[in-house]
Simulated assay, not measured.
Amino acid sequence: MAFRSPPEAPTVATGPAVSAAESHLSYRSNWLRAAVLGANDGIVSTSSLVLGVAGSGASGSAIVTAGIAGLVGGALSMAAGEYVSVSSQRDTELADVRLEEHELRTDPEGELAELQAIYEDRGLPAELAGQVAEALTARDALTAHLRDELGLEEERRARPVQAAGSSAAAFASGAIVPLLAAGLVPDGARTPVIVVVTLVALAALGAIGARLGGARRRPATVRVLGWGAAAMAVTYLIGAAVGTAI
């Protein structure tokens, strides 16, 4: 866990100054994960659902109804699951905050020494580490310990409501793509159009996710396309088999 000193704390010159315009992408990890996961689930699950129903030989109205039910149910399920999961993470974070508050009240000297030891372990000389620890403790001891001892930075703290809302919105935005294709295309062309539209949407999602996360586009796109195509194929074949049997 890298230590990042605030502007007023003493620093050790290790190379050229970092440009103020430099930006990193790791701060996007939480919302990017939820958004990409939600949109991918919306596209794949809804397209697979409508293709499975279409493979069974159901009518167009039944296919669209199944798609709408999948969109609504999936969005609510994503929201509920994300809220519960992130709330558990938030509870753990709050417990750590309360523990640090208690330790700072009951043993401030020990906590100061602990903070100094952290900076020494990261390469600062003992004297400089003590100066940094004292400066950060005087400014905001709790924030310093949460960040540098526990890795809890404010911009990366768990936010259950935000996570639930973004996951539901992302799922719905992805699910609407195959749903529109299922509802607007005539019976004869419905299945191939859903497949093509879904693959195009998945390719775009993979490229956008890679772009936002600073990753390579081709592996991300191929990964999303491969799993999406497999899910649609399996669901369609199962739907066709069930429709034939029934």
Rank of each mutant, 00 (worst) to 15 (best):
F3R: 12
S5R: 12
P7T: 02
P7D: 11
S19A: 15
S19H: 12
A20L: 13
A20M: 03
S26N: 10
Y27W: 14
W31M: 07
L32F: 06
A35T: 12
A39I: 00
A39K: 01
D41A: 03
G42K: 04
G42N: 04
V44D: 00
L49S: 09
L49T: 15
V53H: 09
S56R: 03
S56G: 15
G57R: 00
S59V: 05
S61I: 12
A62H: 00
I63P: 06
I63S: 04
I63Y: 03
A66V: 02
G67S: 02
G74Q: 09
M78A: 08
M78T: 03
E82A: 14
E82L: 14
Y83G: 04
V84N: 01
L99D: 08
E100I: 02
E101I: 15
E101C: 13
E103A: 14
E103K: 11
D107E: 15
A113L: 14
L115T: 05
Y119C: 06
D121N: 14
L124G: 02
P125H: 06
A126I: 05
L128Y: 01
A129E: 08
Q131I: 10
A135D: 07
R139H: 14
L142Y: 11
L146N: 09
E149P: 04
R157P: 07
Q162G: 15
F171L: 08
A172Q: 12
S173C: 10
A175R: 11
A175S: 13
A182S: 14
G183S: 03
D187Q: 11
T191C: 00
I194N: 03
I194H: 07
V195Q: 01
V195R: 01
L199S: 00
A204N: 04
G209N: 10
R211A: 10
G214A: 03
G214T: 02
R217C: 09
P219A: 01
V222Y: 12
G226C: 00
A233I: 07
V234Y: 06
A241N: 06
V242K: 15
G243A: 06
T244H: 13
